[in-house]
Simulated assay, not measured.
Amino acid sequence: MTETRHVPSAPTRVQSLASGATISAHRHDEHQIVYAASGVLAITTDAGSWVAPATRAIWVPAGTVHAHQAHGPLELHLVGLPASANPLGLREPTVLAVAPLLRELILAYTRDPDTDSPERKRLRAVLLDQLRAAPQQPVHLPAPRDPRLRAVCDILRADPADTSTLAALGRRVGAGERTLGRLFRSDLGMTFPQWRTQLRLAHALVLLAERTPVTTVAHRCGWASASAFIDVFRQAFGHTPGAHRP
């Protein structure tokens, strides 16, 4: 990211974004919870990208340079928190599961952000309690640093349905299978199959937000069958791709 806007306060508000719209790279001096009540939100930093459907929110710590992109029409709910209020103790962007109660708390808190009533303060306290209890969900694609690993990741980002083995990909970028396997673990903190599954799930969320049929999503993302895709999707998100549709 070359140009970065500095927006000192992290706003609390509701914002609509058209499908494909972006918010350019910026940073706040405060923490922010970013939640898409509809559509799929992608947040990108120098460390990688995070993808969140309506069952997930993204915690963005103070000072993090980040950009947003909407997949599908996005109803974006933003909650700003002082840098001193870090209920999760997290220093990196993190995807959090949003249970029905937490969803309603976020919607209610962002609906009327300009009031400072006792009721609103109690609402914020409950919201923070629910955030502390929210499970972390690793829908994250870390950014590779090694140029050989970056080349492999770029090949698969261009075509998530590519079923090439790591050895075959290594021949294309001039690196051995063992070297690449070690780089995936040391550079990205996951194995090659784990990273490829995360990539495919992230791509599937985007396609589903664009109302692509489930069978088509499965094939475009590299699963051998729709049933195999549905099983992996359910394990990752707790519901089927059909139930996920915006």
Rank of each mutant, 00 (worst) to 15 (best):
A151N: 04
P73W: 04
V34A: 11
A10Q: 00
G222I: 15
A47C: 02
V40T: 12
S225N: 08
L131R: 01
R185Y: 11
A167N: 14
Q130W: 05
R91W: 12
R220W: 09
V65G: 05
T64N: 02
M190C: 14
A85R: 10
H77D: 00
A158F: 00
P87K: 06
A57T: 03
S49F: 02
R91V: 06
E104W: 07
R220A: 00
R148M: 07
S16T: 15
T165C: 07
D159R: 12
V173H: 06
L41W: 09
R103W: 06
T216K: 03
S38W: 04
M190P: 01
T165A: 11
A21I: 10
T240M: 01
A85P: 03
V7R: 14
A21L: 14
R111Q: 14
T191I: 04
A85M: 08
T22A: 14
A133Q: 05
T197D: 11
V206K: 14
R245M: 14
K121P: 03
G80M: 06
R200C: 08
A62H: 05
S164A: 11
H239D: 07
A108K: 01
D159T: 04
S227G: 01
A62R: 09
G181P: 06
G238R: 02
T212G: 09
A57W: 04
A70L: 02
P135M: 02
T240K: 00
G72Y: 08
H66W: 07
L128V: 11
Q32V: 06
P144Y: 07
L141S: 01
A10C: 02
P93A: 03
Q32K: 01
A25I: 09
G72W: 14
P53T: 04
L96T: 01
R5C: 06
L199G: 00
I33E: 02
R211N: 11
H71K: 03
P113V: 06
R5M: 15
E92R: 11
A21M: 15
T94M: 02
A209C: 13
G181C: 09
P147M: 11
D46C: 00
P246A: 15
H28Y: 13
T191V: 03
A54G: 13
G222H: 14
H71G: 10
T64R: 02
S19K: 07
A21Y: 07
A54S: 14
G176A: 07
P160I: 07
S24T: 15
A167L: 10
T216R: 15
L78T: 06
L127I: 06
D29E: 12
A37Y: 06
G89N: 15
P82C: 01
E92H: 14
L88Q: 05
Q198A: 15
A37V: 02
V139W: 13
D46R: 07
L81K: 07
P118S: 05
L90D: 09
H28M: 10
A243C: 11
V79E: 09
Y35T: 08
E104G: 09
S117P: 05
V206Q: 08
A67V: 13
P147H: 07
T45V: 13
S84I: 08
P87S: 01
A47V: 06
T212N: 05
A85N: 11
V60T: 10
A25L: 07
T215S: 14
G174N: 04
L88R: 08
H68D: 09
